[in-house]
Design a protein around this nucleic acid. Sequence first.
DNA 1: AGCTCTTCCTGAAAGC
DNA 2: TGCTTTCAGGAAGAGC
Length: 287
Amino acid sequence: MPELPEVETVVRGLQSVLSGRTIVSVRLGKTDFIKDPVAVAELLPGRKVEKVERLGKFIRLQLRSGATAKNPEQGLDLLVHLGMTGWLGVRRPEDPVPPHTHVFFELENGRELRYTDIRRFGQMFLSPSEGIGRFGERLGKEPLEISAADFQTRLAGRRARIKAVLLNQHVLRGIGNIYADESLWQARIHPARLATRLSVEELRRLRMAIRNVLRHAIEDRGSSISNFVDAEGKPGEYQQRHRAYGREGKPCFRCGTKIKRTIVAGRSSHFCPHCQRPPRTGRGRRA
DNA sequence: AGCTCTTCCTGAAAGC
DNA sequence: TGCTTTCAGGAAGAGC
């Protein structure tokens, strides 16, 4: 499932093949995950992809139209969220089209930018480039960029369980269920702890764990769970380094205790019951 | 404010 | 064996 490292992997793959390319035409299949499909179909042809970047779990394609004296350049961005099963990549038109491919952008160099999404939990929408600042602010901070001081104040004020806080894209952007569990395991913090009860030292440890986990995951080109593959179709390898996620019943890499799985904040959560001590008022579990 | 539950969707895996 | 049910989860919205 695409989280920050997977989206970063896709974005890096897209940059080389998509930057400078112009969209010639648009073909759409199912459109229930697109906010304004008519606008996508009508406004994108003729626009050039200037830049590809990641905003949390969103992929941002910065598009520019051919500016004339009469028509000053109107910056437009296409934002794509891969949801659970989304894939975005460039193919040749003659390449086989996987099932559930719903968006085709024909490019001027004869290639095709395609969007495939089995479950259609993804999102696609347009935004004026000027509005992207406000969009980014609502999203919370990049976990690899946030300062230690900012991290402390943002998280310490939260009364929710730390797992819920990590998944909240308005606090930090880009962390999903896998990397929340992996980071909490590395920081030795139980997912059901209340964020506001974490010590300064624990918050420091958590920030470092998040940075460490995300950086290694990016190096490994993400985790291939749910058939994730990058923009070229290559799987990631970080799933081989998971220490908590998906390891229920297997020994903890630190102490050998069996990893447990419970529901915290409505999400399946994996942790070591020995290294990650539950809160005193311990709840937040269910069979 | 933040919790739980529900909805969206499909395919894999578990259950019978 | 083969059909049915459950589960997975990112995000948003309802209701409490």
